[in-house]
């Protein structure tokens, strides 16, 4: 279920991205940013689709090594976009960024094999959101001077302090994505600054799918499997934002 949701969300994102009439450079930047978002989603879908496996205390090695996850991610990515990151020019910004993102996915999975494969423990806290945050942190370590990917959310939905929105993100969520007039799924691409550096920023809204509501849905404040109280979200509510920053 979660995989289906994310697939629908990416399709919408692509459609919306195609509708944005920006200057060519900006369009390139936007395309790169959206491809990073798509790849992250693809990897997250892999984790999501293997959540029950990961949570199975009876199985030790789950077979989800870095390579396996990268391969399944690429498979999903190609299927959704028709593109192959590995076929891109590895000197181009998009090629470098996507390869760095794939490397981050591989490293995170490899570094957390002990956790994923810990027998006797059902829920291990290795969920798509934690996986995505770790991937993004590793991507930042690799490409931090050129680009950043972050998954944030409305402040009241943020669970980890590292995912707190910055000013632009918070304002965009409050004034645009939560506004009834904002077309559902429409992204925001904007030239802005971050950490005193000029950047092109793309914010992609994500909405709760049915799978998301297991931990973020009703009843509100009921403790979910992670030990955190549910936020009381409903199907289609704004659940998060993928924030891509491409420094100039």
């Amino acid at each position: 279920m979660p995989g289906k949701t994310w697939t629908v969300g990416l399709a919408m994102l692509a459609a919306l991205a195609a509708g944005t009439g920006t200057a060519f450079a900006d369009a390139e930047e936007e395309r790169i940013a959206l491809s990073l978002a798509d790849l992250l989603r693809s990897a997250r879908t892999v984790i999501s689709s293997n959540q029950n496996l990961i949570n199975d205390p009876s199985i030790g090695d789950k077979g989800l090594s870095g390579d396996v996850v990268v391969a399944r991610t690429l498979e999903i990515y190609r299927k959704n976009t028709g593109l192959d990151p590995l076929a891109m020019d590895d000197t181009s910004r998009q090629g470098r960024f996507l390869r760095a993102q794939l490397a981050a996915i591989k490293e995170v999975m490899d570094e957390n094999q002990a956790t994923v494969n810990q027998p006797g423990v059902d829920f291990k806290g290795f969920v798509p959101a934690v996986f995505a945050r770790l991937v993004n942190e590793r991507f930042g370590e690799k490409m931090g001077r050129e680009a950043e990917v972050k998954v944030t959310a409305p402040l009241e939905l943020v669970r980890n302090r590292k995912s707190r929105p910055d000013k632009l993100e918070a304002a965009t969520i409050r004034d645009k994505f939560l506004s009834p007039e904002w077309p559902n799924g429409q992204i925001l691409a904007i030239e802005s600054s971050k950490d005193n550096r000029q950047a092109f920023r793309v914010l992609v809204p994500e909405y709760y799918g049915q799978g998301c509501l297991t931990c973020h849905g009703m009843p509100k404040d009921e403790v979910d499997i992670t030990g955190y109280p549910k936020e009381g979200g409903k199907l289609g509510d704004l659940g998060g934002v993928i924030s891509i920053t491409l420094f100039r």
Binding site: L155, V158, R159, N160, R161, K162, R164, Y228, P229
Partner: peptide, 11 residues
Amino acid sequence: DLAVSLLVRSE
């Protein structure tokens, strides 16, 4: 708890 989990809820 916040120092350990960094959870917003703890804050």
